[in-house]
C-alpha cells in the first residue's frame, strides 16, 4: 500500500513538473519522475509481502515435499517484465526529448517555454 501511495505521489509530482515548470529540462525531469512513479506502481501491483521470486529452481525440483513453490507466495513475474519494457521506453522518450531540446537550444539559445510559442491559434 505504501508503494502504491508513494508511486501515485511520484506520478503527481512528475505531472506537476510537466504542468507548471517553464524550463524544458525541468519538464523532462517531471516526465521522468512520472515514469518512475508508474514503474513503481507496476512493480507494486505484483508485489507480495514476504514472497519469493517466481523461479522454479533446480533445487526445489528435487525436494520431495515442495515440488512446486507456494503459489500464494510467488511474486507476479509479469509486471516485472512489463516494467523492463516500460523503463526502456521511458529512456527512449527521455533521450528523444533531450535531443530535441538540444536542437531547440542551438536555435534560440534558450530553454525557456516562453521562447517557444510561435505555433499558436
Amino acid at each position: 500500500m505504501i508503494f502504491f501511495g508513494a508511486s501515485l505521489l511520484l506520478i503527481l509530482i512528475g505531472l506537476y513538473g510537466a504542468l507548471v515548470k517553464r524550463n524544458l529540462i525541468k519538464i523532462i525531469i517531471g516526465l521522468s519522475i512520472m515514469d518512475t512513479g508508474i514503474n513503481m506502481l507496476i512493480i507494486s501491483l505484483g508485489f507480495v509481502k514476504g514472497g519469493t521470486a517466481p523461479i522454479i529452481s533446480l533445487k526445489s525440483l528435487f525436494q520431495k515435499n515442495s515440488l512446486l513453490v507456494d503459489v500464494s507466495k510467488i511474486v507476479d513475474p509479469l509486471p516485472q517484465a512489463l516494467v523492463l519494457t516500460a523503463i526502456v521506453i521511458g529512456v527512449a522518450v527521455t533521450a528523444m526529448a533531450l535531443s530535441v531540446v538540444i536542437r531547440m537550444y542551438s536555435v534560440k539559445k534558450s530553454i525557456e517555454i516562453d521562447d517557444f510559442k510561435e505555433l499558436k491559434w
Binding site: 530535441v100 531547440m104 510561435e118
Partner: peptide, 11 residues
C-alpha cells in the same frame, strides 16, 4: 525550426 517546438509539445 518551429517543428522542434511542435515536436517537444508532442513529446
Amino acid at each position: 525550426w518551429s517543428s522542434l517546438e511542435a515536436s517537444f509539445k508532442y513529446i
